[in-house]
Each structure stands twice: as C-alpha cells, then as structure tokens.
Simulated scan of single mutants.
Amino acid sequence: MKNFIEELEWRGLIQDKTNQTDFKYFNDSLIVGYAGFDPTSDSLHIGNLVPIMLLTHLQRCGHKPIALIGGATGRIGDPSGKSNERILLDSNIISTNMKSIKVQLSKFLRFDDSISGALLLDNYSWIKEKLFLDFLNEIGTNISINYMVSKDSVKNRIDREEGDGISYTEFCYQLFQGYDYLYLNRNYNCSLQLGGSDQWGNIITGLDLIKKIDKKSVHGVTAPLVKKADGSKFGKSEKGNIWLDSKKTTHKEFYNYWYSSSDEEAEKYMKIFTLLEKEKIEDVLMIHKSDPAKKILQLTLANYVTSFVHGEAALNFK
C-alpha cells in the first residue's frame, strides 16, 4: 500500500503539514481524515477537485476519508480569501445544495467498503444540538480574541480599507470549524484534516482546541492553491466558474478548459487531477515533448479529467 504523504509530495499536493505528520504516521494504522465542502452552490467546481483528490488519495492509500458538508458553517460563511461579507443563504437553499453535492462526491469516493469506506457527514447534525451557552463555555473559553484576530483570514478583513470589515458571524467561523474537528475526533477517531492552503489557519484552530480540551495531538495537511501559469485564478473561464454539473458547464466546455492548458499547466494538472502513476505521466510527457504540436499532454489530460468527473460517455461530443 502506498504511503499517503509520499504520494502527495511527488504530485505537488503539499503546502503545509504539522510537524509530526510524517511517513511513519501513515504506516502505523488506519487513519481517518476529513475535508470540508461549502454548500453555497448546488454544484461543486473544479477548485473543489483539490480536496476531492486529497480524500481520494487517502482512501487509495488504505485510510478512511470523511467528506464533511458544511450545512451549519455554510450558513455562516468562511472569511478566508473574501473581501466582503458573504450573503447568507436560506436554509432550504442550503439543503437543496447539499443533496446535489452529495451526489457529486459519490462519484469519486467509495462508500461501501467496511474498513476504508468513505463517510458523508453534515456538521449541522451536531451543531444544531449545541446550545449557545454550552458552546461558549466549552469552545469560546479556550480561544482568545487575540488568537482569532491574528489569523490572516480575519486580520486581512480588519486591515482592509474598503469594504465593511468583518461581522461577528464570520469572525466566529474558525470556532465552528475547530469544533467540527473536535467532534469528529471524539466520535469518529478522526485525526487528520485536509484542505487548501487558505484553510491552514482554521485547521490550526482545530488542532489547538483538541490539544487544549482533550489533551490530544492531531494532524493537518494542506495543498497549494492551484493557479494558472500567468498567476490568474484557476478554475475560471470567460463564462465564470468551471462547474462539475454539466448543466452549468457542458461536457465540451469542461473538456476544452483542460485541453486549452499550457504545457506548464498541463504537466502540473496531470499530477494533481489524475490518478495516473508517475511512470505513465512521465511517458506522456516524453511523447508530448517529441512533438508538442500534437498536444498529446493536453489531450491525455482533457480525456482523463472529463471521463473521471463525468464518465466516458461525456467524451461523445467529440
């Protein structure tokens, strides 16, 4: 069985990790790890493919993934990377979005394996049971305002000259995400949180809470935020986000996004967004470099990711 950290490293999928998160940690026993997904739309987009791939590799390395839908935190809004307050969505819209996201996630993770089968959870199921005073008593007393303000996601919003600053609602987001990790550790023996590098501050809050309250050491790993070769935002086209829902982004549009990648982008994307082995990717690169005009690299990437997300039938448009 492959080692999870080793697999992520050669694919360029590690930005930050806690000091004790080494190779040995993933060799000793089955690890339960989770990543969160925000239900603010009725579809995930290709930016969400990064945490999906993290969970997929975790499972393929013999461990147990949890896909956590933020039914509660989605009602609050994560300030990370945002310049303005998010518009809060109606609970009915959140519920509808969650159902669609669950269907999409089930395409990538195995849920029927008795040992490493994935779990699909909704944090609203435990946060709704928590009384506000109990939450403040257990969680709020263990995290200082100084600590919370020091996080980039909060500090950037406070220091920003334009905009409305940050509301108490979004300010508290990191407490709720930290509580998620505490709850999952207690109830599912989850000891690993995965996410994009913009989530590092929130992940650290969870680690610190668990260490303070339950005297346990847990782990965190983040992947770099994927950007295009020119530094622009990954996952955007002239029409906006590239969605995983074919009603929002057609199979042809989805395919063409990957096919139009530069050589530099396509080489990086092959490692991040496919499950191809290192030797296979190196073979494709060698063939491509012998005749770049044929775009074998982009062709392989577009065919793979399109069929991976939508099934082989999605390639019938060609």
Score class of each variant (00 low, 15 high):
Leu120Ser: 06
Leu121Pro: 04
Tyr124Ser: 13
Tyr124Glu: 04
Tyr124Arg: 12
Trp126Pro: 01
Trp126His: 12
Lys128Ile: 11
Lys128Arg: 12
Leu131His: 14
Phe132Arg: 01
Asn137Glu: 11
Ile139Lys: 14
Thr141Cys: 07
Ile143Asn: 01
Ile143Cys: 05
Ser144Glu: 08
Tyr147Leu: 07
Met148Asp: 00
Met148Phe: 12
Met148Pro: 09
Val149Pro: 10
Val149Tyr: 06
Val149Gln: 01
Asp152Leu: 12
Ser153Met: 13
Val154Arg: 04
Val154Trp: 06
Val154Asn: 01
Lys155Trp: 10
Arg157Met: 06
Ile158Leu: 15
Ile158Lys: 09
Asp159Asn: 15
Arg160Tyr: 09
Glu162Asn: 15
Gly163Gln: 07
Asp164Trp: 02
Gly165Lys: 06
Gly165His: 10
Ser167Tyr: 13
Tyr168Cys: 04
Tyr168Gln: 09
Thr169Ile: 11
Phe171Gly: 05
Phe171Pro: 01
Cys172Asn: 15
Gln174Ala: 03
Gln177Ser: 02
Gly178Gln: 06
Tyr179Asp: 02
Tyr179Val: 03
Tyr181Trp: 15
Tyr181Thr: 05
Leu182Cys: 13
Leu182Asn: 11
Leu184Asn: 00
Asn185Met: 13
Arg186Asp: 08
Asn187Leu: 07
Asn187Tyr: 09
Asn187Pro: 09
Tyr188Val: 03
Asn189Ala: 12
Cys190Lys: 08
Leu192Arg: 04
Leu192Thr: 04
Gly195Lys: 04
Gly195Phe: 05
Gly195Ile: 03
Asp198Asn: 07
Asp198Glu: 00
Asp198Gln: 02
Trp200Leu: 01
Asn202Gln: 09
Ile203Leu: 07
Ile203Lys: 13
Ile204Cys: 08
Thr205Ser: 07
Thr205Glu: 00
Gly206Asp: 01
Leu207Gln: 07
Leu209Ser: 08
Leu209Phe: 10
Ile210Lys: 11
Ile210Phe: 13
Lys212Val: 06
Ile213Leu: 15
